[in-house]
């Protein structure tokens, strides 16, 4: 009797598993297809596509597009630009985000919930809506201080706006995580006479490593992939990040999509590297905040 039940149960489970596998498989294909297609395109010359069409049988396959792309994109300059925008922006976002989260979650005062709400709400505004005021403010403040390019047309201005925009999300995630850390730890620190700064720096910050790591990956990806702010807040293209260099592969009238595909593959590499370095923390960081221990 029990044997038949468990056999029937096992059979049903197997069908279910198979169904789920097929389902996941289909989705995996849907996700992988564009990447594989980009990779495939990047290996073929445009002249062949132009003459024979996209679905033609390839006559030649090679890495020519990659070498052309690296040269046309002026890769070292633009990668460097991306680095000096992304690295400080991520660092400052995490620093300020963790400080704010620490205060709103560890100290109770009248406005701490509304403050948290304010930070999160700021994140909901689309950049397209606020870029004109930001742009005007950058110019005005720059004019006051006697240098129009103090914020506008400068990489620091772009760093600043990224910090402002991403801080809300960082604060939100970090404060939710901090609420799961037992209050007793904080109380013990206070009893031992830790100052507010020591409490933050030596007690809380080490405990925040997993969410900080996962946020670092997310922030790096978002800021690195940004094109909009760099476009509207800078006027000189040679200061813009790598997303703008991709545009250099695009002609005014003709777009060599195969070359562009190669460029996209190159531009995507650094985010992948960051992801693989922080991968373990990324996954554990995502789940750690989810359950209250």
């Amino acid at each position: 009797m029990t044997a038949t039940i468990s056999r029937r149960y096992r059979g049903r489970q197997r069908v279910k598993d198979r169904f789920i596998s097929i389902f996941i498989g289909i989705f995996a294909l849907v996700w992988i297809f564009p990447i594989v297609w980009t990779l495939w395109s990047s290996l073929r010359p445009y002249s062949e596509i132009r003459a024979n069409g996209v679905f033609s049988v390839p006559e030649s396959i090679g890495l020519d597009n990659y070498s052309t792309a690296i040269q046309r994109m002026d890769l070292p300059t633009y990668l460097w630009n991306s680095l000096i925008i992304t690295a400080p922006a991520v660092f400052l976002t995490l620093l300020f985000g963790s400080v704010t989260a620490f205060v709103v979650s560890r100290y109770s005062f009248r406005w701490n919930v509304s403050m948290l709400l304010l930070f999160t709400a700021g994140n909901l505004l689309p950049p397209q809506l606020v870029f004109i005021p930001v742009f005007k403010a950058y110019l005005t403040v720059g004019d006051w201080l006697g240098n129009r390019r103090l914020f506008y047309d400068s990489q620091w201005g772009v760093v600043l706006i990224h910090v402002a925009f991403q801080m809300g999300f960082a604060t939100f995630v970090l404060s939710s995580y901090m609420k799961t850390i037992p209050k007793e730890i904080s109380e013990a620190a206070k009893v031992d006479g830790a100052s507010v700064f020591r409490h933050y720096w030596n007690v809380m910050l080490p405990l925040l490593r997993p969410p900080l790591a996962s946020l670092a990956v997310l922030m790096t990806t978002w800021i690195y992939n940004d094109f909009f702010w760099a476009l509207v807040l800078m006027s000189n293209d040679s200061k813009r990040p790598i997303t703008s260099a991709l545009g250099r592969l695009q002609g005014e009238f003709v777009t060599d999509y195969n070359l562009l595909a190669a460029g996209a593959m190159i531009a995507a590499l650094p985010t992948l590297v960051v992801f693989f370095i922080l991968r373990r923390q990324f996954v554990s960081g995502l789940t750690l905040g989810a359950t209250k221990g």
Binding site: R148, V232, S235, D237, G247
Partner: peptide, 19 residues
């Protein structure tokens, strides 16, 4: 200074007001 044409065109208003 060179900018890709689409980016240049989309951003011209800011470009002309800025620097």
């Amino acid at each position: 200074n060179a900018t890709e044409s689409n980016a240049f065109q989309n951003n011209l208003s800011q470009y002309l007001q800025g620097t």
